[in-house]
Amino acid sequence: MKVIDMYDAPHTGRTVTSNDIKISARNVNVFYGDNHAIKDVSVDIEDKMVTAFIGPSGCGKSTFLRCLNRMNDTIESSRIEGTICIDDEDIYDRRVDPVQLRAKVGMVFQKPNPFPKSIYDNVAYGPKIHGMARNKAELDEIVEKALRRGAIWDEVKDRLHAPGTGLSGGQQQRLCIARAVATEPEVLLMDEPCSALDPIATAQVEELIDELRQDYSVVIVTHSMQQAARVSQKTAFFHLGNLVEYGETGKIFTNPEDSRTEAYITGRIG
């Protein structure tokens, strides 16, 4: 697949380096009712790189991830403060339509959640609602490309019209990834994408994540430190709603600066 140059838009007159900052969050606070879930988090996420969020359960890593495509909007009691910019545009600006944002920032969920439709329709759903294909042939092409990108094409090409719910767990999750990339997002958010999968399926998905790095900025939440070490280039450690430490994955795992990080990766908290 051809790598698309994402920074040729005329209105952004910035110099572009290969590891440009894609998402920058500043002083983000999230509340669910009275519960202060995210406390003053600032972070820069780079393009074409896998960034892992790790931390014990309930530390806010998933919450923060869901802020990046405004999925938290669908929860009635949630409230967010601070700014999150993608390509220097505040995504919580009044002018931003979350629908448009989510087309640009795709998401893969913890549990594989294929729609109760055919495999084809699952993948075609996003392109259809965003009007990406002019005709059936184009749509077919998009679907095939996405399924290939999701490394599942060979397994399903003969049964595109079978229901997506009939696939195995690992296949379902790769189908969901294919579904997410079909809308050609620029950022791909993954919320513990392997937690419901067996080791073999996990390995396949991890391999896929590594490939996706070439085209997208991938943010993955995981509770498995080994997985973070395997797939990510940068790692952020969350604890009790705070971003404790953020840096090169190698450095975090071998030489953490913060004592809490060290305690977590050595298994004393978590």
Partner: peptide, 28 residues
Amino acid sequence: TDASTNSAPAARKGASLHRTDPRTRRRN
């Protein structure tokens, strides 16, 4: 039915999030 397969693909790549494109306006 969905007529969207026939409409022009959205020129989304790199477009500003601060401007709602016509298709999104229609969808809204």
